[in-house]
Amino acid sequence: MRGLLLLLTLVLASALAVVYTKYRSRMLFAEIQRLEQELEAYEVEWGQLQLEQNTWAERSRIERLARTRLGMVLPQRESIIYIKP
């Protein structure tokens, strides 16, 4: 009788361990899914930021801003002074 009680206890403990392991596995899978979605959102944002950076750094844009906001112009060829070393 004692052996049967021990065996029943071990079976019950094993069943509870299986249930807990399955539950934990599902929780971790849900967390992985959430983190993958978050990563995908960050990758999209990163791509958008790279596009924005390229737009801000375009040579034509910088030249236009230098002319309009700062009043800069390209020097005339005649006004360039060459200094010999």
Rank of each mutant, 00 (worst) to 15 (best):
I62L: 13
A15S: 09
L51Q: 09
E45V: 07
L12P: 00
Q48Y: 11
Y20V: 10
P85G: 09
A41Y: 10
K22M: 07
F29E: 10
G47W: 02
F29C: 01
Q76E: 10
Q37H: 05
A17W: 03
Q50M: 14
I81D: 00
R59Q: 14
R67C: 07
Q33P: 00
R69Y: 08
R64M: 10
E78Y: 08
I81S: 00
K22G: 03
L6K: 02
E40Y: 03
L5W: 05
Q48C: 10
A66P: 00
A13H: 01
I83F: 09
Q33G: 09
V11F: 13
L7Y: 09
L28H: 07
E36H: 08
V19K: 05
A13R: 03
W46N: 09
L12C: 07
A15D: 09
Q33S: 14
Q37A: 14
Y23I: 04
P75I: 14
F29W: 12
Q48M: 15
V18T: 05
T9Q: 13
P75R: 11
R26N: 08
L35S: 02
Q76A: 14
Q37F: 13
S25I: 01
V73H: 02
A66S: 06
A15M: 08
L5E: 08
V11L: 11
P75F: 15
G47N: 13
E36L: 03
I81F: 03
I83L: 12
V11E: 08
V44P: 00
E52H: 06
Q76P: 00
E36K: 15
E40M: 03
A57I: 07
Q33E: 14
L7P: 01
K84F: 15
R61S: 01
A41R: 13
Y82C: 01
E58A: 05
K22L: 09
R64T: 11
E40F: 02
P75V: 12
L65N: 04
